[in-house]
């Protein structure tokens, strides 16, 4: 780490896993830190570069099927992320990234692939033609103290949460993990996985603040958040209205 007061934000493999505006989560964490006077060093790690071990917050995004397989192959050979998570770094993984950090997923060749084992989930593939696409609303596990999450899902995964993790949230709208039990995402310690993009932090800045709180260990000063709140309430209102019709 360059300076103790500097937060290292690591975005893993934008060249492979950045299909759904995933850069947004990096930009939002960065901005919310800067607005609290926390200096940020953002490191974008391309898939032919090693993952640094000294990051405070790691982000992995979504991607198409083949890039997902390539990303998993390269991350399995790179101990950087596991080392960092083992040392207490925070990790948010979205969609294809969520599947990769689990124990196992099904790749584009319909073969089972080992994940990174950083979160106790297993992902299979739903029936062809049964893709989960659309708006999601989900009530977060109260232990995390977050307001309802709003996001957009677009995946064919069916992700089962194992005993070593807890569901991140329960959907009131949309599919989430695709298991039919209403769960969405998973978390354990400082590792969070979700199918929600949008990107998820644009509608749920509290999630960015949760990662920042974990990384800094101190309470954060509240921000104005006028536009984030406007967007959140518009999305919640619109999605709920569509659901009640």
């Amino acid at each position: 780490m360059i300076g103790e007061s500097r937060l290292r934000l690591v975005w893993i493999y934008p060249d492979l896993l950045s299909t759904y505006g995933d850069q947004g989560n990096a930009l939002i964490v960065e901005r919310r830190a800067l607005m609290r006077g926390i200096e940020v060093e953002r490191v974008d790690v391309r898939s032919d570069q090693p993952v640094p071990t000294s990051g405070d917050i790691y982000l992995i995004g979504g991607g198409e099927d083949r890039p997902q397989r390539l990303a998993a192959e390269r991350l399995r050979r790179d101990p950087g992320l596991a080392t960092a998570v083992g040392a207490g770094a925070a990790l948010l993984a979205v969609c294809a990234g969520y599947q990769i950090i689990g124990n196992e997923f099904i790749d584009d060749l319909d073969q089972s692939e080992a994940g990174l084992g950083l979160l106790d989930v297993r992902s299979g593939r739903g029936a062809p033609g049964k893709r989960c696409v659309g708006e999601v609303l989900a009530e977060v596990d109260p232990a995390l103290g977050l307001p309802v999450l709003s996001g957009f899902e677009n995946h064919q995964g069916v992700t089962h949460v194992g005993p070593g993790a807890k569901p991140l949230a329960r959907v009131t709208h949309g599919n989430g993990n695709g298991t039919g039990d209403g769960t969405e995402g998973a978390y354990a310690g400082r590792v969070i996985g979700t199918y929600m993009h949008g990107p998820v932090m644009s509608r749920n800045p509290a999630l960015a603040d949760l990662l920042l709180t974990w990384a800094t260990g101190v309470p954060l000063t509240p921000l104005g958040d006028h536009w984030h709140e406007q967007l959140r309430s518009e999305r919640l209102r619109t999605v709920r209205a569509a659901a009640s019709n």
Partner: peptide, 30 residues
């Protein structure tokens, strides 16, 4: 899905008046 607006580098529009419209103007505002 409006996620794609986060792939666009809007900082290229700095230094001029910007006005936001449309059904998803709040996504754009954020």
């Amino acid at each position: 899905d409006t996620s794609w607006i986060w792939d666009v580098d809007f900082t290229q529009l700095a230094g001029r008046p910007l006005f936001v419209l449309g059904q998803r103007r709040l996504d754009l505002a954020v």
